[in-house]
Design a protein around this nucleic acid. Structure first.
Lengths: 254, 254
DNA sequence: CGATTACTTGAGCTACATCAACCGTGGTGG
DNA sequence: CCACCACGGTTGATGTAGCTCAAGTAATCG
């Protein structure tokens, strides 16, 4: 039914050298020989069904995970009982970077659909990085990118109205998808409306209303989970300035 | 007039080995000998007056900076002309971690008061990390901690009401301050109200009103920039549940 | 010492949350 | 194969937190 399954099966036993994600994943700029060494410590796990935890908040931190196919949400269960969705993760991205500083995982990773990952035992990875200059560099680079990307996105949220948030979110998804050679204007939303609402800090009803509004305005087409972006530019304008584009943005401007 | 100046003068020429921040800064868990090597690449810069840029958005990335005294804000000038405050930084923290993945700095660092830093030229640092196992580990740890801390904080913002945001912010400041052996219940707010408003995604007026409300409620005392926390527990309750503590938190609960 | 800038306070308005009802879809069992 | 239920999603009505606009006061600076 879906392309993910095919990819999963195809690449299950494959090495980094053959992986179609290698140019966004860890082994960028690493020699053939070193890649082999990296390969040796990587454990390729079998596909995880939807709704399963790859790791849970509070567990001991042992490994990073590179996503090969599917998608995940990181969930934090807060002290007040709420659960808060920290991030969504897609193929080529690394899960667990926020666990390194602690002994235990600060969040759970839950699959949103059937997904497969490469497990990177951290101790071995760190040991290896000590000997492969490119790997150390790449680890630092990815972590930095992670800081920057999430930060920028979350940051933009607190400053933005609901329509700006949702528009930014959609564009963000499309871009991340585009990075990996998939269509960046038509794709499936793996997460539920309430996941989106939680992530964006809005009510489910607001998400729903906005989707229908965006659709009425001809910005996109959405039916259930299938999303097609019709006017990317207009969507980006909405992300930047909100629906009301003639308003000069009084607050926060310098 | 203020203690910062004294510290600055005291430690201007001092090595990591003598620095009172060494147990939160980079050289944790590094041998005496290795610390010397780290020391050799560090450039100690002279104090920066308030309101100056340590580095500017768009500049080439060359170095990380460890803050010895004072404080900074990271500012991003967005494409729509707004300026958005990403973070505040205090002694013992590292500036520039978000620049590593790019060639240029994604944000500017502006001093909020007279501040001094240690410059860590990145190429040399990375080279050194290749040879000092503890240093590599420490770099990764700090970056991970950074991801987690900022993320958790920003995340909490989008889900929280104005009073929760401000209360969390104050607690956050107090904790970071407490980490370094200073009083954690009485300190100076280095940043302006509008900086706070910008950072928290609120209007200046709201910040002002909340400060007076918190004061009326006896949670704290604030006069201009001088802040004294009177009821830390009550403040934490506000941070978690908002002013209205008998409300059962309907949304987002699972 | 006037002028500029930072902060406070008040009044009204709006965007979004909340509450509630309803609808479509997919799953299950008869 | 249909009837039913459960659940995710949509839509409508209403309340309110916090933004905006406006004006006043206190601190800072030349």
């Amino acid at each position: 039914m879906n392309e993910e399954k095919v990819i999963t099966l195809n690449s299950l036993a494959k090495a980094c050298a053959d992986c179609h994600l290698q140019d966004v994943c860890l082994p960028i700029g690493i020699s053939r020989k070193d890649m082999q060494r990296l390969d040796d410590i990587i454990k390729r796990k079998r596909p995880l069904p939807a709704g399963q935890a790859l790791f849970r908040q509070g567990e001991d931190f042992r490994a990073l995970y590179a996503i090969r196919s599917g998608s995940f949400k990181s969930v934090v269960y807060e002290n007040n009982g709420r659960e808060s969705i920290n991030a969504f993760h897609f193929p080529g991205e690394i899960l667990g970077l926020d666990s390194i500083s602690e002994r235990s995982c600060p969040s759970s990773a839950i699959s949103l659909e059937t997904s497969s990952v490469c497990e990177l035992p951290f101790e071995e990875l760190e040991e290896l990085a000590q000997h492969i200059k490119g790997l150390q560099h790449q680890l630092l680079r990815i972590m930095s990118r992670e800081i920057k990307a999430e930060d920028a996105f979350l940051r933009s949220l607190t400053h933005r109205s609901a329509d700006q948030r949702l528009a930014s979110f959609i564009i963000n998804l499309a871009e991340r998808r585009g990075n990996h050679g998939y269509s960046n204007h038509e794709f499936k939303l793996a997460m539920s409306r309430s996941d989106i609402a939680n992530y964006l800090g809005l009510a489910v009803e607001t998400i729903s209303r906005l989707f229908t509004r965006f659709q009425n305005e001809g910005l996109l087409e959405i039916r259930r989970k299938k999303l097609k972006i019709l006017k990317p530019e207009a969507l980006m304008v909405t992300a930047r300035t909100g629906s009301d584009s003639d308003k000069p943005d009084s607050n926060l401007a310098k």
